[in-house]
Design a protein around this nucleic acid. Structure first.
Length: 411
DNA sequence: TCTGGGGTCCTTTTGCCC
DNA sequence: TCTGGGGCAAAAGGACCC
């Protein structure tokens, strides 16, 4: 589900060039969520299908190519997508199913090489240097993977083959859907320079605007500008990074497992809310949800942050670092609520609140806090008991009393 | 046209310590 | 005692990605 701003390869281009030195594969499922849905509902094949939020404030998560022909793309407000393509069938997302399908394709990848770096449910980098003797040239390995994913998961994917991660990523975007493209090491600059600046990884709407203001339209334009000019405009890190990418320089390696930096939850209200009691209850729900995930993954975190988005979409955040790391929902909530109350909002209209825990470390080996953490005692044990109940009886079996819907609990 | 939810990373500001 | 500044960590904001 990349942004798809790379123009497709024109007719006559040779998709399989010289793959010597091209040991990086980028594999991207085509319209992943929608493809998983079509597997279950084959009668919808050939029709425009959108997976996305069905509420009044939903956005498009995935759209079939039939639907993209109408200009629909991911992250587009659903209202607009429906206007562009009234015939589209809209399906609410089923993340459990996508996770399942994702696990299946990742397994296919790992049968090829242990060097698999997932970027999201539907996309991954592979370093196949070590698999060549066993399975053949990188392009052959790419075709093998495409065939297996099609066979086992009944989903098509596109594969970019290159000597660096980011060129492989551009290549897969360029041969979508259901394609494979090799960018030979010697052709990288010729491949990159005609592309629009927005094709580069890290250039979004804002950066594109800035670059256009400097008169830089293509990657080639960017490459010919002095690095210090870019750095002045975009900051030292981003400027230096883009200058390197414009010449195809990217020494990032494929890393199989990166530890999490943060875990959080947020929710947009169906309509804006100004009642503090409703917001407090939402903060509690989000804190509990976050803590359940911390405990499930065996992590604790030291910094709690909240996010508040107002009706006009302006957003602010507040954070606080605790004396010791926690995975206790009550502690996350208490901290988050303190931060929220500290904002002193006089019934401002909010469209979203979020809770996040950062500064994560593995829970094993972190001593339980006995002196400063008196507030944890009891809550932690209670929440672990709730985890076990949820495991046996289903999520939501045990909840804080304020989160129990009175209509539901009176049965 | 009106903008989700999960994240990462970078930059700037601020407060503290020496 | 006052002031300045370097260094650091935390906080806040924002861009970006899928």
């Amino acid at each position: 589900m990349s942004r798809g701003r790379v123009p497709p390869v024109g007719p006559g281009a040779d998709p399989v060039g010289d793959d010597a030195g091209c040991h990086i594969l980028h594999i991207d499922m085509d319209a992943f969520y929608a493809s998983v849905e079509l597997r279950r509902r084959p009668e919808l094949r050939g029709r425009p299908v959108i997976v996305g939020g069905t509420g009044s404030r939903g956005v498009v998560l995935s759209a079939t190519y039939e639907c993209r022909a109408y200009g629909v793309h991911s992250a587009m407000p659903m209202m607009r997508a429906r206007r562009l393509c009234p015939a589209a069938v809209v399906i609410p997302p089923d993340f459990a199913a996508y996770q399942d399908a994702s696990a299946g394709v990742m397994e296919v990848f790992r049968a090829v090489t242990p060097l698999v770096e997932p970027l999201s449910l539907d996309e991954a980098f592979l370093d196949v240097a070590g698999a060549r003797r066993r399975l053949g040239r990188p392009a052959q390995i790419g075709e093998l993977i495409r065939a297996r994913v099609q066979d086992e998961q009944d989903i098509t994917c596109s594969v970019g083959v290159a000597s660096t991660k980011f060129v492989a990523k551009l290549a897969s975007a360029r041969c979508k859907p259901d394609g494979l493209l090799v960018v030979p090491a010697d052709d990288v600059v010729a491949f990159l320079h005609p592309l629009p600046v927005a094709a580069l990884w890290g250039v979004g709407e804002r950066t594109e605007e800035q670059l256009l203001r400097l008169g830089l339209r293509t990657v080639g334009d960017l490459a010919r500008v002095p690095v210090c000019t870019l750095q002045r405009a975009l900051g030292p890190a981003a400027g230096g990074h883009l200058a390197a990418l414009a010449w195809g320089r990217d020494d990032r390696v494929v890393v199989p497992h990166e530890p999490d930096r943060s875990i959080g939850a947020e929710e947009t209200f169906p309509t804006d809310v100004d009642d503090p009691a409703v917001i407090h209850r939402e903060l509690l729900r989000l804190a509990e949800r976050t803590a359940v995930r911390l405990r499930a993954t065996g992590q604790v975190g030291r910094t709690v942050s909240i996010k508040v988005r107002f009706a006009d979409f302006t957003t602010l955040s507040r954070s606080r670092t605790l004396p010791s790391a926690t995975d206790v929902g009550r502690t996350v909530y208490d901290t988050g609520r303190m931060l929220f109350d500290g904002l002193g909002l006089q019934r401002a209209r909010l469209r979203l609140v979020g809770v996040r825990v950062e500064g994560l470390t593995p829970a094993a080996g972190v001593p339980r806090q006995l002196i400063l953490g008196e507030r944890d005692s009891g809550w932690r044990e209670a929440e672990q008991a709730a985890d076990r109940a949820a495991h046996r009886f289903g999520a939501g079996a045990v909840r804080p009393a304020t989160l129990v819907d009175p209509l539901q609990s009176s049965e």
